[in-house]
């Protein structure tokens, strides 16, 4: 019952104090969250920091989807950046070559990523453990090669420039605080949906699969369809992040969506904490902001980055979020 207990303690030791009712507590947590985002967006004037915060939001969106797949359903993916790229490229190609509005290409991008995830997921999710990791890795590599080689449509390795920005009327959603609000708005909605899923029948089925797929199947969980559903969900979230990225930067190139990007996403999930939605926020923030702080190390940046990754995993194998909560509990009980 490892996974289950982990989850249960997580619920008990949530952010909010004491024995507040779950609904009240949720309203409080989301209220603080929304307030923090709004305050930051309104008070921060530097577009550099706004952009950085927006990147944190995008990575959180990617990490939380992947966490649903890895943390709750126990299915690792080393090719998640492929869906990120699919969202970006489908929308990018349709807007650039056909001149469609991004608001029309958004559903196309999400649908395409979901459909690909469904088709690829059918055979791939039958694999387990490292074989699943390899299967998803291979898929990610192939998608990245397609981005590079279908030059006529994708712009090839040099990338695809000239994507339109997101606008509603005269409001531009691709820069500064507006982009921040858009991305973090998506994050908050995604968090909300994820929490709903986790607490639903579906969530219980996923956790059962994580603990033992056979046992889950034995008690009547349709494991194949549950895994596939969550895979498609994670892919669609990633595609949404890709869509937002593409129209924010207005330029996409294959290197943003390569194997390394997939590995970084996995690292975000694990460092933040598997099976912890708020952990994804922490992991994504840390790994996005870290390189910015590490600049002072110049040549030694890679060494320090690698060391931090190792040390966090050695001393906080359950992820930072859960350990922080534990520390808080300990302090409170003293």
């Amino acid at each position: 019952m490892r996974a289950f207990n982990k989850y249960a303690t997580n619920r008990q030791q949530g952010l909010a104090p004491g024995n507040m009712k779950p609904i009240l507590r949720n309203i409080l947590v989301y209220g603080i969250f929304i307030g923090a985002v709004a305050a930051y967006g309104l008070l921060e004037k530097s577009t550099y920091y706004l952009q950085l915060a927006t990147f944190v939001g995008l990575n959180t969106l990617l990490a939380v989807g992947l966490n649903m797949l890895m943390g709750y359903a126990g299915q690792i993916s080393l090719g998640h950046a492929a869906f990120y790229g699919l969202g970006a490229y489908v929308s990018g190609m349709l807007t650039v070559h056909l001149g469609w509005s991004p608001w029309i290409t958004l559903p196309c991008a999400l649908f395409a990523a979901g459909a690909v995830a469904y088709i690829v997921g059918l055979p791939t999710l039958r694999l387990t453990g490292y074989y699943l990791a390899m299967g998803t890795l291979g898929f990610g590599m192939i998608v990245n090669i397609l981005f590079r080689e279908f030059r006529k449509f994708t712009g090839g390795p040099s990338g695809l420039p000239g994507l339109p920005e997101l606008t509603i009327g005269s409001i531009n959603l691709s820069h500064g605080a507006n982009a921040l609000f858009l991305v973090w708005g998506c994050v908050i909605v995604a968090f909300f949906i994820c929490e709903r899923i986790v607490n639903s029948r579906m969530g219980r089925a996923l956790r059962a699969i994580h603990y033992s797929e056979r046992a889950a199947a034995a008690v009547g969980v349709n494991t194949a369809s549950a895994k596939l559903a969550i895979f498609v969900f994670a892919a669609v979230l990633a595609a949404l992040a890709g869509f937002l990225y593409a129209h924010m930067i207005t330029f996409i190139s294959p290197s943003t969506f390569n194997f390394l990007a997939s590995v970084k996403l996995v690292a975000m999930v694990v460092i933040g904490g598997m099976a912890s939605i708020w952990g994804s926020l922490l992991g994504a923030s840390l790994l996005t902001l870290l390189p910015d702080f590490l600049h002072i190390f110049a040549e030694y940046e890679m060494i320090v980055y690698g060391l931090i990754l190792m040390l966090v995993m050695i001393f906080f194998p359950e992820g930072l979020f859960r350990n922080l909560v534990k520390l808080y509990e300990r302090a409170k009980n003293r």
Binding site: I296, F297, A298, Y300, V304
Partner: peptide, 20 residues
């Protein structure tokens, strides 16, 4: 491990002015 980290950081700090 701590010593390793310190080692990695120290030359980094030494170079801070030259660094980015």
């Amino acid at each position: 491990m701590a010593a390793l980290l310190a080692l990695a950081i120290m030359p980094g700090c030494g170079e801070e002015k030259k660094a980015e």
